[in-house]
């Protein structure tokens, strides 16, 4: 067997034992519009105006005479490290979520919003993905986020 063929076989043998990694990302719905949510005014905004601004809700809940609408979006990032016989995988999923509450006259009484889709990270299982510094840095790149809410 020639030296070059031996080298090729050796390289293939080493390659078969080398590590690999994979990244995946999944998104459900568009991230919520923080500016549109900031314009909501408890005691004034109607259900019709909310739907005109934000579109159809994901869920509607009847709460006696009141109603609540849910809007949401989710981003999930997955990372896998293959080490042949030992594999590591991590999934980090976060959501933008908005709940709007209406009184019996379909006028907004309360709302609560959380924004998390931009905080999702590719990471390994042993890494902390909820560090305050990481969250703050990502929040700085997206205007108007954090948690928001209130009532009349």
């Amino acid at each position: 067997m020639s030296t070059s063929r031996l080298a090729l076989l050796g390289a293939l043998f080493l390659f078969s034992f080398s590590s690999a990694c994979a990244l995946g990302r999944m998104e459900q719905n568009d991230p919520l519009d923080a500016a549109a949510i900031g314009a909501l005014q408890p005691g004034k905004t109607t259900a019709r105006e909310v739907v005109e601004a934000l579109g159809a809700p994901t869920e509607v809940v009847q709460l006696g005479r009141r109603t609540a609408y849910r809007y949401d979006a989710t981003t999930t990032k997955g990372a896998v490290l293959f080490l042949v016989v030992l594999n590591f995988a991590n999934v980090d999923g976060r959501s933008d979520r908005l709940w709007v509450f209406f009184d019996e006259n379909d006028v907004l009484s309360h709302y609560g919003a959380s924004f998390g889709t931009h905080r999702t990270q590719y990471a390994m299982p042993w890494e902390d993905v909820h560090e305050d510094g990481d969250n703050a840095a990502r929040d700085a790149d997206r205007a108007g986020v954090g948690t928001a809410g209130g009532g009349k």
């Binding site: 590591f88 999934v91 999923g93």
Partner: peptide
């Protein structure tokens, strides 16, 4: 293979 998998949601 042995695998270690972690899932964090919200």
């Amino acid at each position: 293979c042995l695998s270690y998998h972690r899932t964090r949601i919200d």
